[in-house]
């Protein structure tokens, strides 16, 4: 359409020279599509992608969750009646779903504090270390950049009944072993995810630590505050906004849990002790052919995460937010 008109050189015909800048600006203001309407064309592929592949499915998920939806062959027109909250009731009354949410609760209670604490302490030490700094930084993010599937393999090996971990623990080894013990399966998964993601959160904290002015530490040490006091009174409050972000992202990661229970505990075993909501979505929606119920579960899960995130923001963010 009108994009064509100023394609290429929007300023063609304007006298060349520095002083004409002002006139140029006013002239181009008149253009309805802006000074470089070509920008619309440049943005178009991205906008189409976002609308088609992300925004539309988002609405579609909500639509599916309120209808009696089932899979059909492509192009077949069938009646998919509106069923109101039926799918939500099915989801919320399903004991397996309740179990999976409880599992995620256990996961978050272990994973989130551990992640926040360890990544802050390690980032703080990493920020001060002068020797081997690059080595430490790289070794911390190696698990983060490696595929879950690959590291799951070695964790299975380490934590199996006769694995190295139990060999080291000797008589202290749990029985039944970690991943087949209904009390320990979920905590082990939480530990795995903490280990896997920690490098990313360390990098986030490292970035936040750069924003704390050195003068604060200097004047604190002049005043005789020791390292511990400095850590609690300067570092921790100084990275509060990063802590909010880390808490939030760790929670979202936890809610997205799929690969780990699928592979580490053979699909959420033992006896559903480590099933996750996303795993149930896969099971109900795709294996059992109930996409409507699965979509409702997805919506419930996202609302749950949002609520938790709001509470966390209050708790971690303090009064300033």
């Amino acid at each position: 359409m009108s994009l064509r008109t100023s394609d290429g050189s929007p300023v063609t015909g304007a006298p060349v020279g520095g002083t004409t800048d002002q006139r140029l600006v006013t002239r181009k203001r008149k253009n309805f599509l802006g000074r470089q309407p070509l920008g619309l064309l440049f943005s178009a592929p991205y906008v189409i992608y976002v609308l088609g592949v992300l925004a539309f499915p988002l609405g579609y998920a909500v639509y599916i969750s309120f209808h009696d939806y089932f899979f059909t062959a492509p192009g077949v027109q069938v009646d998919r009646p509106f069923v109101g909250l039926d799918n939500y009731i099915t989801v919320l009354t399903d004991p397996a779903v309740q179990r999976s949410f409880a599992n995620i609760g256990v996961f978050l209670v272990i994973n989130v504090p551990l992640t926040v604490g360890l990544s802050l302490v390690l980032a703080n030490a990493l920020n001060r270390v002068t020797k081997l700094k690059t080595f430490f930084r790289v070794s911390y993010y190696v698990p983060y950049v490696t595929a879950s599937v690959a590291v799951v393999g070695v964790w299975l090996f380490l934590f199996q009944q006769n694995g190295l971990v139990n060999a080291v623990l000797g008589p202290l080894a749990p029985n039944p072993s970690w991943l087949v013990n209904s009390w320990l399966a979920m905590p082990t998964v939480a530990l795995f995810v903490t280990w896997k993601q920690l490098g990313f959160f360390i990098l986030l904290y490292l970035a936040a630590l750069q924003n704390i002015p050195d003068e604060l530490y200097e004047s604190a040490s002049v005043d005789g505050a020791n390292k511990r006091v400095q850590f609690w009174n300067i570092t921790v409050p100084g990275v509060r906004s990063a802590s909010v972000l880390v808490t939030l992202l760790a929670t979202i990661t936890g809610a997205n849990l799929f690969t780990e229970p699928y592979l580490l505990t053979g699909g959420g075993g033992p006896d559903g002790a480590s099933t996750s909501p996303v795993f149930l979505m896969y099971q109900m929606g795709i294996l059992q052919g109930n996409p409507d119920v699965a979509a409702a579960l997805g919506v419930v899960l996202v609302i749950g995460v949002l609520l938790i995130a709001l509470i966390q923001k209050r708790l971690v963010g303090g009064k300033e937010d």
């Binding site: 992300l54 539309f56 499915p57 988002l58 579609y60 998920a61 599916i64 979202i252 809610a255 997205n256 909501p277 996303v278 979505m281 896969y282 929606g285 996409p291 699965a294 979509a295 997805g298 919506v299 899960l301 996202v302 995460v305």
Partner: peptide, 8 residues
């Protein structure tokens, strides 16, 4: 969140 997009 990707889990919301999974089914659609």
């Amino acid at each position: 969140p990707f889990q919301l997009l999974l089914i659609p």
